[in-house]
C-alpha cells in the first residue's frame, strides 16, 4: 500500500518535533501529559517522605527456584526487589505477584508480613497474568492516543471495559477530536508503532493510590474522567481514594493490577477504530488492539488471523455513567 507521507503527517505528530505550544482555549495533549506526570511524581515523592523509619517485614517466598524467607523493608520493598534477591529469571519473566493469594503489582511496595509467589505467562493457569496483560493493552492504547495526534486534535480518553481475553481484542473508548475519520491500514500501522516500540524499553508500570481531590486536579482537562472520579472514589475501600498508574510519562486511572514492565510485550497492533454511540457520553471512538507477550512467541500467520478477528467490533458494553447499575461490569477495571 502506497500512502504519501504528507497525508499521514496531516494527522500525526512526528516524535522528533513535537509541539508544546499552548492553544488559546486550553492545554494541548502533550502539556496535559506533562502536567499529570509532574503531579504524579510530586505525590509519589510526598508519600515516600512519609516513611521516616524503616521497619522490617518477613516475606515467605513460595515456588521455584526454592522456598525462602526474606527480610524486607515495610512500605518500601516491592515484590520485584524480592525477585532481585532470589533469581534473575524471576525479575525478567514475572508478570504479577501473589501476596497472600491476592494479585499484586510487581512494583507495588509490600505492606506487611506476607507470603509471596511470582506469576508468569507459562504457569499452569495463567488467567490472572492474561487479564493483567489485557488490561495493560488498554492502558497502552490510552498512552498511544494521547501522543500520536497533532495538537489540533484534542484527545479525551473515556474508559475501558473489564479485560476479556476471549473477545480477541482489548479496547479503549475515547473522544479523539476528529470528526468523520475512518483510519486506513497505513494509519493504523503508523499508530501501532508507538506502543510496539515500548518492547525495547523497560518502562516500569508504577502504581499509586491518591486522594480523589488530587485525581480530579490531574484529570480536570478530561470531561469524562473528571465526571467518573467521584464514583470511582466512592467505590474504593477508603471512600475517597483513586488508584493511578504511570508508565513513562503517561498517567491513567485503573484498578489494576497491570504487568510489571513494557519489556514483557512482544507484538502490539492497533487493529481498528470503530464509531460507537454512548447514551451518556455521546459519540465516541472505540479503539481496539491486540498484543502478545515475549514469553509466548507466535507465528506471523497465526498472528494475522488474530489481527483480523481483533478488527471486528468488540462486544464489550458501551461506556456509561458510573452510577448506573449497568456499569457494574465496566469502567477502568
Amino acid at each position: 500500500m502506497v500512502v504519501s507521507s504528507r497525508s499521514l503527517s496531516k494527522l500525526f505528530t512526528s516524535t522528533s518535533r513535537r509541539r508544546f505550544c499552548s492553544k488559546a482555549e486550553g492545554l494541548s495533549n502533550a502539556e496535559i501529559t506533562k502536567k499529570r506526570n509532574e503531579l504524579f511524581g510530586r505525590e509519589k515523592a510526598r508519600q515516600l517522605a512519609l516513611i521516616t523509619r524503616v521497619e522490617k517485614i518477613e516475606v515467605e517466598h513460595v515456588g521455584p527456584p526454592e522456598n525462602c524467607r526474606l527480610l524486607m523493608n515495610k512500605g518500601l520493598s516491592t515484590p520485584f526487589n524480592c525477585a532481585m534477591h532470589i533469581q534473575e529469571n524471576l525479575m525478567s519473566r514475572s508478570v504479577l505477584a501473589l501476596v497472600n493469594g491476592q494479585p499484586w503489582d510487581l512494583h507495588r511496595p509490600l505492606e506487611d508480613h506476607c507470603e509471596l509467589k511470582f506469576l508468569h505467562f507459562k504457569d499452569e493457569d495463567p488467567a490472572l497474568s492474561n487479564k493483567a496483560f489485557w488490561r495493560t493493552g488498554s492502558f497502552l492504547i490510552g498512552y498511544t492516543l494521547e501522543r500520536v495526534f497533532k495538537d489540533q486534535h484534542y484527545v479525551q480518553l473515556c474508559s475501558f471495559p473489564r479485560p476479556r481475553v476471549e473477545t480477541g481484542s482489548f479496547v479503549y473508548d475515547a473522544h479523539l477530536g476528529i470528526s468523520d475519520w475512518t483510519p486506513s491500514q497505513a494509519e493504523l500501522q503508523c499508530m501501532s508503532r508507538v506502543p510496539a516500540k515500548l518492547q525495547f524499553e523497560d518502562f516500569k508500570l508504577e502504581r499509586l493510590t491518591v486522594d480523589a481531590s488530587l485525581a480530579s486536579k490531574m484529570f480536570e482537562d478530561n470531561k469524562f474522567k473528571s465526571s467518573q472520579i467521584p464514583f470511582i472514589a466512592a467505590k474504593s475501600k477508603t471512600g475517597h481514594s483513586v488508584t493511578l498508574y504511570r508508565m513513562d510519562d503517561h498517567v491513567d486511572i485503573s484498578e489494576g493490577p497491570l504487568i510489571a514492565s513494557t519489556a514483557l510485550i512482544n507484538r502490539f497492533n492497533i487493529t481498528a477504530i470503530h464509531d460507537i454511540e454512548s447514551e451518556d457520553y455521546g459519540s465516541l471512538k472505540r479503539v481496539q488492539g491486540l498484543s502478545t507477550p515475549k514469553q509466548l512467541p507466535i507465528h506471523f500467520w497465526n498472528y494475522g488471523i488474530l489481527c483480523e478477528r481483533a478488527a471486528k467490533l468488540n462486544p464489550a458494553p458501551m461506556p456509561a455513567q458510573w452510577n448506573k447499575e449497568a456499569m457494574a461490569t465496566r469502567n477502568n477495571a
Partner: peptide
Amino acid sequence: RNNSKSLINVLLHNAKKD
C-alpha cells in the same frame, strides 16, 4: 503440561470457535 489456558491458545481457540 496443559497449555490450553495460555494467552495465545485462548485467543486461537476463540478465533477457531468464531
